[in-house]
Design a protein around this nucleic acid. Structure first.
Lengths: 216, 216
DNA sequence: CGTCCATTTGACCTGGATCAAGCTATGTGG
DNA sequence: CCACATAGCTTGATCCAGGTCAAATGGACG
């Protein structure tokens, strides 16, 4: 089990992709940079998730700790073999990849067509959902900074801040310090997020993958 | 082998996901709709690609023909078995999923941070690359309409049109009728697309997956 | 307490959206 | 073979959501 502090990277975009990592505790951000420095966070990694799977010989993105993070490391080849051998792990990995693809498509919808308010509302619902297994409380943990949120949502830090303030002033959410929020009106938030076909249970059961126990 | 005409759908978002499809000829667009009708095209499917793989019992998107399309249909269960049995097909499918994931992440970068001009330039390079196997010519086929391009790039039809006109007036591209374009200055186009770290060979060899022969 | 960031708030600006005509290839049927 | 319908595309004029720049404000930690 390895451990890194907030801000440290497990690997960088372009590093030789020799390992796969399983996060045990903490949150990571996955990002890509354009040559001029524009940053896009393509996802956040929570405990139980894997990072670094790819076919290329180099990582296509950087993985950094949003909070202090503990993780396990697997040799790339050993990981591949293990997956290939186990008729139990294999479909679990496949399931992960499919879920990840579905999330990526939802993110494309968000980035291509949603307004700033819809993006922020969607984001709050997404992270509320990530935690849903652990806890069922209207108080959700927001470990990332406003800049992380902005780079994930394709907005600026100022727009994220203004939008959060507006949601709070309308009583939809209530800030609990910098890194937590109380959701006061869940239905309203789902409505503001767009894609809510009212009786939509997407936000209460959206993952079909169970907790996997990765090798070792 | 089945066949559909331009505009027809193979399946709709929300349909029972009972089959997987392999496109043999033609081009499909994959899209998702927000409840108010905003459309996002999350990808285009070319001959040799698969569509409809998912773990959910419903498709998460609609697949429609951009051009007349011929495709093969596989029962979902039979497809899963076939993949699971074959130690040859399995890594190929895995490779596809990884490539698709990499493309999705590039698209998130495009949608989150690129300007209209960068988006259009990136798009032209992407489709030029899709065809690269078939032909090596500066004349690239653009089977989709301006509206399809707009909904893929998170822009409006007007902005796509204006941007194409501007690229043409600068001699970077030259229109060849509505559905083809000559690339006059490939380096310039790559530069305008952003992410060009000059000596970047991303655009000449970006796929590690070979042509797979899907079952049947 | 003071320093240092993260965040909020305010004022202004702009790229791309929106609204509104024209234009151009295909048909199509007389 | 030619009007003329039609759907896709281009072009122009105006608008505005969110970006940019700048200045407080606030909280965590020595």
């Amino acid at each position: 089990m390895e451990r890194i502090e907030t801000g440290a990277a497990i690997f960088w975009e372009g590093d030789a992709a020799d390992h796969v990592f399983a996060v045990v505790e903490g949150v990571l951000r996955i990002h890509k940079l354009l040559p001029d420095g524009r940053r896009v966070i393509t996802g956040f990694i929570y405990p139980g998730d894997l990072v670094g799977i790819s076919l290329r010989d180099r990582y296509l993105y950087t993985a950094e700790a949003v909070t202090p993070t503990r993780f396990r490391r697997f040799g790339r080849n050993r990981f591949q073999e293990e997956i290939n051998k186990s008729p139990e792990l294999r479909p679990q990995l496949f399931a992960r990849l499919c879920d990840e693809m579905a999330a990526a498509q939802d993110q494309m919808v968000l980035l291509a067509r949603k307004s700033a308010e819809e993006r922020v509302a969607s984001f709050l619902l997404i992270i509320a959902n990530r935690l849903a297994g652990d806890q069922r409380s209207p108080v959700i943990d927001v470990p990332m900074t406003r800049l992380d949120m902005a780079d994930y949502l394709g907005l600026t830090i100022e727009t994220v801040s203004r939008t959060m303030t507006k949601l709070a002033s309308r009583g939809v959410i209530a800030p609990c310090g910098r890194h937590a929020v109380t959701i006061r009106k869940l239905e309203m938030l789902a409505l503001l997020a767009g894609e809510s076909d009212e009786d939509d249970n997407r936000w209460t059961s959206n993952t079909y993958t169970q907790q996997a126990v990765w090798p070792h």
